[in-house]
Amino acid sequence: MACFLVPTTEAVVTTIIQKKAEKNKKEGKEQGIFLQRIGWLNNMLWGGSALLAFEHVWHGEVTPWFPFLTNAEDPANLTAMLQEMGTVGVGMAVTVTVLWAAMVTAAERMKKKMGKAIPVPVKQDRQMREERKREGGI
């Protein structure tokens, strides 16, 4: 019906947040991990909403004339449409956001792991082992 309007609205809000975050970055302010990766969420929301909107056009639920949504013409259908937006639409927005949050968290963990595992050059490693042996260690 019009479920895609909920993630589209979220996409508008996150785009505004991204613009502000970019401005703050230029000013040298520090940003949290989620703000740094908000572009991923924008791509998912805008892309998903665009493709979903196309599906609605395909099914004749969106028209190029006012009120643009065929279900908005009839008050009985309007209630069902709003109900669908509140359930399926909100569900879509929440699912995409949770997926993005999981991706950001996983990426951050991988980044931390990479930071910890800085490879020691082979020559240096051999020297360190020999020194430890001489000192009566391993």
Binding site: L52, T95, L99
Partner: peptide, 19 residues
């Protein structure tokens, strides 16, 4: 960007499919 777009759409359609 292309893959994120498709993943976003897939997540949305998954919710639609569950409903």
């Amino acid at each position: 960007m292309l893959s994120l777009m498709y993943w976003g759409a897939s997540a949305m359609w998954l919710v639609d499919a569950i409903a």
